[in-house]
């Protein structure tokens, strides 16, 4: 069949608006997830077993189930539990933040664990008190080491965000599928949508590798 990509131009503003929606809730979920993930990673190193177990179960559960079911659960079950009406946008941000927090906490935890014990030895040999050790030696290194992982979480969340189309949120994916149905030209529209995702996902992925290579040089002294 004859393909015709020219008609896509008519839909450029609709598609861009979809992309804008995607970027909005992804950014919000990322910021909330970053804070929540850091708190969770501290919980997971807690010596209080109740805090430790609850946070571990939380993280494992969100990492061990499809994001799609998490999304449906927040969308359909949370309002029943809380007896409130949540807007689509709020529900989506809640669901993605909860997920992003779980994967972010793992990045922080891995970074904390990767710091060699000889760094602790050096701190003791220099007579650094525990608070100084944590704040000035361990924390900065943990953040530096977590950066590549945190960035690849950004890519993951960006990709997972296409799921929100399944609950009727008008993101890029949803808009694309809608147009494809209306004009009966799925090949052109869906290819274009894929390319838009690619145009953002690819540079992000490359940035991760770049930053990773640069940071490894600094951290492995």
């Amino acid at each position: 069949m004859a393909l015709d990509f020219a008609f896509l131009l008519d839909f450029r503003w609709v598609l861009l608006k979809g992309l804008w929606t995607t970027l909005q809730f992804v950014t919000l979920a990322l910021v909330i997830g970053l804070v929540w993930g850091f708190v969770l990673s501290l919980f997971r190193t807690s010596s209080n077993w109740v805090i430790y177990s609850l946070s571990t179960i939380y993280v494992e559960f969100f990492r061990g189930t499809p994001v799609l079911i998490q999304l449906f659960w927040i969308f359909f079950c949370l309002p029943l539990f809380l007896d409130v009406n949540l807007s689509d946008f709020t529900s989506v941000v809640i669901a993605l933040s909860l997920y992003s927090g779980a994967i972010t906490s793992e990045s922080f935890r891995a970074a904390l664990k990767s710091i060699e014990s000889s760094q602790h030895d050096a701190c003791i040999a220099l007579g650094l008190p525990p608070t100084v050790r944590t704040l000035f030696v361990i924390l900065p290194q943990a953040v530096l080491r977590a950066i590549p992982n945190l960035l690849s979480n950004v890519v993951s969340l960006f990709k997972e965000s296409a799921l929100v189309s399944a609950v009727g949120m008008a993101d890029l994916m949803y808009v694309g599928q809608n147009i494809a149905n209306n004009v009966a030209r799925p090949v052109e529209i869906l290819t274009a949508v894929a390319l838009i995702y690619f145009a953002i996902g690819f540079p992000l992925t490359r940035a991760v590798s770049f930053v990773e290579a640069r940071l490894l040089k600094v951290v492995k002294a």
Partner: peptide, 24 residues
């Protein structure tokens, strides 16, 4: 002084030297 230096990689040479006297 240790076999594997154990310098703090996120601090400059000056930062490495000044951390302990300043903070402890």
């Amino acid at each position: 002084v240790f076999q594997h230096y154990t310098l703090f990689p996120h601090l400059s040479v000056l930062g490495n030297l000044c951390l302990a006297p300043m903070r402890s």
